[in-house]
Design a protein around this nucleic acid. Structure first.
Length: 567
DNA sequence: ATCGCAAACGATCTTAAAGGGAACTTTAA
């Protein structure tokens, strides 16, 4: 366990919520929650900050300072442990249900006497929630839907959350058992944004795998019905590790290794199409996946592209794209500084760009309606632009572009007057409030923003947060068409929890000649590393660097802005 | 619990929408 700021912040955040559930003094709990937020946004690690400086941080006094020391020394917070022991685990878990806060959870626990999410769902189905003060029909429906969403995503993980774990196991197996072959396959190999289980093909005998994993604290999972893709489970075994992540091993002798790998490295539709199209002969012998493709007379298709049948036509026409790579990203577009809710100063953000070899930085802090994120009022925009001017003079030829992540208001209007909007080099427009919308409302709102001549980039198109929030419904085709007509670039927000727009729609956007922009939406210099996940998703859509805005060099980007501006 | 002003203590405040229930509480961004 790593004791970093995120870890410490999480302890205080959970403590605050649990104390709220227990009805403690709200100012006290607020202090803990403010401290959590402050700690999360600190630019330096607390473990490397002297205690007297920790106490000096605004919002952290003696008591919280001591608790921080306790966490750093012991790895835990005794007060939190006490609250956890006084609260049923199922009640704590309810904090994951969207729409349920501490007050409602307290009622559910103390008055309804429900102690798990399962019981709560049952109570919703039985119309029992409506009987209590503060709960009505709509709340009950919302809770039920949120629980169903939660259950549907149990056992699913973000690609980025499993990456280190998967590669560590892969490396461990290869080191410990050099006499056998292991190949990571399945959803991970296909670079899918959500992973239900990690899969390997191996020549290792089943018994030996069982022995190894049980010795390392894994349990064999015999419940194959729960498998996300229950096809072809003969000859495979499932384990569940202490982390609750499911591992699947497909056993194959050397002779069929490539076939087994191939058959577990594509979508069902892709593999069906493959069988139809080629004279697929499972009994033939292939030394490698490449041999499978060449025997079929089709150029090699990377696993990340093995999703839709149409890719077979593309390959047959020798028209496979040269996929964009992380090194093709030349700039950081869409980033936040400590002017709004980012951790780092403008200068630190710029310095990190220079150090990593990016040619320019687009700073897009939150706009004034995002008050929770300390969005910029008009006077602060002027101040920030002044500072950017000074930095640009100092850092040339490196360039910081003046931008804003401008809220799309309820009616689709932007958050500033045209006068203010015209002072930015470019404008990223995003929805941050009132995300619960009908498709009709969402479309009116988005289309109006897209038609606004100041909109350069449409930020995180659906507002989804993978595994935690579905996002508002949109008609993707109409949005893309509108962006094509208005020359608006569509962001592929690279944050691994967003990856929004969905890569499945990028193909259509490219057909319509819409530019995509892979943007990290960085809230600290650390956030730049998320670029990679955007690239992995973009590769699935066959994106090339030519169609990606953040791949433009500095001069090309200037030219793009000049050509784009019609004001 | 923290801060600030003042000397032991009082104030602490992001806001808008939603929902429930007829004035307010809760939640989410």
């Amino acid at each position: 366990m790593i004791i970093d700021n995120d870890y410490i912040a999480h302890q205080f955040s959970l403590l605050s919520k649990l104390m709220d559930i227990h009805g403690e003094n709200s100012f006290k709990t607020k202090s803990y929650s403010v401290a959590a937020y402050t700690i999360e946004k600190l630019p330096a690690q607390l473990t490397e900050t002297p205690p007297e400086k920790v106490i000096a941080i605004r919002g952290i006094g003696d008591a919280i300072g001591k608790k921080i020391t306790e966490i750093m020394n012991t790895g835990e917070l005794s007060l939190l442990r006490e609250y956890i022991s006084r609260t049923p685990a199922g009640v704590i878990e309810m904090l994951n249900i969207k729409g349920l806060g501490p007050k409602k959870i307290a009622t559910i626990w103390k008055e309804m006497e429900l102690e798990s999410i399962g019981e709560l769902l049952y109570a919703c189905q039985e119309n029992r929630l409506m009987l209590y003060k503060g709960f009505g029909e709509k709340t009950q429906n919302n809770v039920r839907e949120a629980i169903e969403f939660f259950f549907n995503h149990q056992g699913s993980h973000l690609y980025a959350d499993l990456e280190v774990y998967a590669l560590a196991i892969d490396a461990k197996l290869k080191t410990d058992f050099p006499q056998y072959r292991f190949a990571l396959t399945g959803e991970f190999r296909r670079q899918l944004e959500i992973i239900h289980q990690l899969e390997w093909i191996t020549t290792m005998p089943l018994e030996q795998a069982r022995e190894f994993f049980t010795a390392n604290g894994f349990t064999e999972d015999t419940n194959k019905e729960e498998l996300h893709d229950p096809t072809d489970i003969a000859g495979s075994i499932l384990f569940k590790g202490p982390e609750g992540i499911r591992l699947q091993f497909h056993f194959s002798p050397e002779a069929t290794f490539a076939i087994t790998l191939f058959e577990n490295s594509g979508s069902t539709e892709f593999l069906d199409a493959w069988r139809h199209r080629t004279n697929w002969d499972r009994s033939a012998s292939y030394p490698s996946e490449e041999a499978i493709f060449s025997a079929a007379g089709i150029p090699f298709i990377l696993p990340c592209l093995r999703e839709v049948p149409a890719i077979l036509d593309t390959a047959a026409k020798q028209a496979l794209p040269t996929l964009i790579q992380p090194g093709d990203i030349k700039a950081i577009i869409h980033s936040h500084s400590n002017w709004s809710d980012g951790s780092n100063t403008l200068e630190e953000m710029a310095a990190a760009c220079i150090q990593k070899g990016y040619e320019y930085l687009v700073i897009s802090d939150h706009s004034k309606s995002a008050f929770y994120a300390n969005g910029l009022k008009e006077d602060r925009i002027r101040e920030q632009h002044h500072q950017i001017g000074e930095l640009n003079a100092k850092l040339a030829p490196f360039t910081i572009f003046k931008s804003i992540e401008c809220d799309i208001l309820n009616d689709g209007a932007l958050d500033y007057s045209d006068n203010i909007l015209s002072t930015f080099d470019l404008v990223i427009t995003s929805v941050h409030s009132n995300l619960k919308m009908s498709e009709e409302k969402a479309m009116t709102r988005l289309l109006r923003a897209i038609e606004n001549p100041y909109t350069t980039i449409l930020g995180h198109m659906t507002g989804r947060l993978l595994l935690s929030r579905p996002g508002y419904p949109v008609d993707h085709k109409k949005i893309i068409d509108a962006c094509a007509e208005n020359k608006v670039v569509i962001e592929l927000n690279a944050h691994p929890r967003r990856l929004d727009m969905d890569w499945r729609w990028i193909g259509y956007a490219l057909e319509r000649g819409v530019l995509i922009s892979i943007d990290p939406d960085a809230h600290s210099t650390e956030g730049y590393k998320h670029i990679k996940y955007g690239v992995l998703a973009a590769q699935k859509a066959g994106l090339t660097k030519e169609s990606n805005l953040s791949s433009l060099g500095l001069e090309q980007f200037r030219a793009f802005l000049k050509g784009r501006r019609n004001f």
